[in-house]
Amino acid sequence: MTDIASSPARLPGWLSALRNILAYLLRSPTSAFGLAVIAVLVLTAALAPWIATHDPFAQNLDNVLQPPGSGHLFGTDELGRDIFSRLVYGARITLRIIFLVSVVVGPIGLIVGATAGYVGGWMDAVLMRVTDIFLAFPSLILSLAFVAALGPSLGNAIIAIALTSWPPIARLARAETMTFRKADYIAAARLQGASPLRIILKSIIPMCLPSVVIRLTLNMATVILTAAGLGFLGLGAQPPEPEWGAMIATGRRYMIDSWWLVACPGVAILCVSLAFNLLGDGLRDALDPRQMNRR
């Protein structure tokens, strides 16, 4: 009965909450900038074939290291490829990374955190200890280790980043779960004989979902920077993929004379990660001004 009553009411509730948040974000110039950049990023990735002026992989050895202008908006690289077009296609890689990382990290963090928080006792102790161990490493260094072990590739970089970024999510999901655990409807479900697994999946995880999604958004800037760092060290996307970090790494040799090889992809990374940071900052304020204390 309650299900029928609540489910149609829930969707508009969600939607209007989303609309309120968007309206709040757009009021602040910094988060509006963040949203705009992210919108541009998504559009660029979606419409890459139409936006790009050249084939991002097409080499032209007669036309290498051309400065910006002259038929190539951002110039050409050491193999004569059009940098602008490579940046445009690189947006797809960036989005793929943050999407895949979030898709892996969200569920892992949710399940670990909700289980620890709901079951409690030794399960909680063990799971949180494991979380702490992962948190004991700076994430880039742990990712480095994983990629080194798995072998350098974009896929492995994504796995490595995911493996290192679930602990904060798990912490958050656990904290949320602890607050819901005592709620009446959970107790009611338990009395009706629902199994812990069922309660976690059906009641607890949906309750934690909004804050986890927000935390994932906050995390995206870090993911982008780590991925770019791995790409720069040659451990992420491999040439000729137009990944921005890898483009900087190859452009490094030509930097003194052809600064645009390095400057353009760097600005792209900076803009996108700044956009996510600004958006995250705005979200934090929009959802709870008192949350400033927590990281």
Binding site: L225, G245, I248, I256, A263, L270, S273, N277, D281
Partner: peptide, 25 residues
């Protein structure tokens, strides 16, 4: 307050290897 926030978020958003290269240049 807003200026400080943007300034510090900017520092937080830089790919440091890139800033290092640009700084050297």
């Amino acid at each position: 307050d807003h200026a400080v926030r943007v300034f510090s978020l900017f520092g937080h958003s830089m790919p440091i290897f890139w800033t290092g290269m640009i700084g050297l240049l």
